[in-house]
Amino acid sequence: MDYAPLTWSSCPPSYLSLLEKVQARAQRLIRLKVLPDQLLCPLQPLQQRRGVAGLCVVYTTHKQHVPYLAALRQPRARPHGHTTRAAASRDHQLIVPFARTETSLRSFLPRYTIMLNRMVQQTQLHSTSSLQTFKSAVNAWIKQP
């Protein structure tokens, strides 16, 4: 459920709420099985896990140039012709594919391209060298309000 962002990202919110109910039930079952003296780690929300997995796919596509993900590769945004505050991060941003409807905006490429562009503007995570470092840093970035 949580490692298939390509599949689940374009689902309507009503379908995603059904998945959240399944996770809530699983958490209740886990809490029932835990002994009173054991400490239970909270499970991450599925939306956060989908976000991290989707950004990792985009990172893998653009940084590691994996051939089987070549169809997901988006072109880089053109650099500004003049100097602005956003010019430095613009070199690492991607062009967001056109989406006419809300359903199209929820699909994988627009959603995670927008997320990656926002992440590039706010942080320097895109310059990390390993996928594991990127994944850990994105996990912390998504948790921030």
Results as ranks from 00 to 15, higher is better:
residue 42 P to F: 12
residue 42 P to I: 12
residue 110 P to W: 07
residue 113 T to L: 02
residue 65 H to F: 14
residue 68 Y to P: 15
residue 111 R to E: 06
residue 89 S to V: 06
residue 54 G to S: 00
residue 133 T to L: 10
residue 25 R to N: 13
residue 65 H to V: 15
residue 24 A to F: 15
residue 43 L to N: 10
residue 32 L to T: 06
residue 34 V to Q: 11
residue 105 L to A: 08
residue 128 T to L: 11
residue 50 R to Y: 11
residue 96 V to Y: 09
residue 111 R to L: 13
residue 30 I to E: 09
residue 60 T to Y: 07
residue 82 H to M: 00
residue 61 T to Y: 11
residue 126 H to Y: 01
residue 18 L to P: 02
residue 92 H to K: 10
residue 65 H to M: 11
residue 70 A to E: 09
residue 105 L to V: 02
residue 60 T to R: 11
residue 123 T to E: 03
residue 56 C to Q: 04
residue 85 R to P: 00
residue 84 T to L: 05
residue 33 K to N: 04
residue 131 L to C: 09
residue 35 L to S: 13
residue 32 L to D: 02
residue 54 G to H: 01
residue 58 V to S: 01
residue 117 N to E: 11
residue 69 L to C: 15
residue 16 L to H: 06
residue 83 T to K: 15
residue 107 S to N: 08
residue 120 V to K: 05
residue 17 S to Q: 14
residue 79 P to D: 07
residue 95 I to M: 08
residue 24 A to M: 10
residue 35 L to M: 15
residue 81 G to A: 06
residue 39 L to A: 09
residue 83 T to H: 11
residue 116 L to W: 15
residue 38 Q to M: 11
residue 51 G to Y: 12
residue 113 T to I: 12
residue 20 E to R: 02
residue 90 R to I: 01
residue 116 L to N: 01
residue 86 A to M: 06
residue 98 F to K: 03
residue 57 V to T: 12
residue 77 A to C: 05
residue 17 S to A: 03
residue 58 V to A: 02
residue 84 T to V: 04
residue 120 V to Q: 04
residue 102 E to Q: 14
residue 83 T to N: 09
residue 120 V to P: 01
residue 33 K to R: 12
residue 121 Q to G: 04
residue 114 I to W: 10
residue 130 S to K: 00
residue 133 T to P: 03
residue 47 Q to N: 11
residue 67 P to S: 07
residue 107 S to A: 07
residue 92 H to Q: 04
residue 24 A to N: 11
residue 23 Q to R: 13
residue 30 I to N: 11
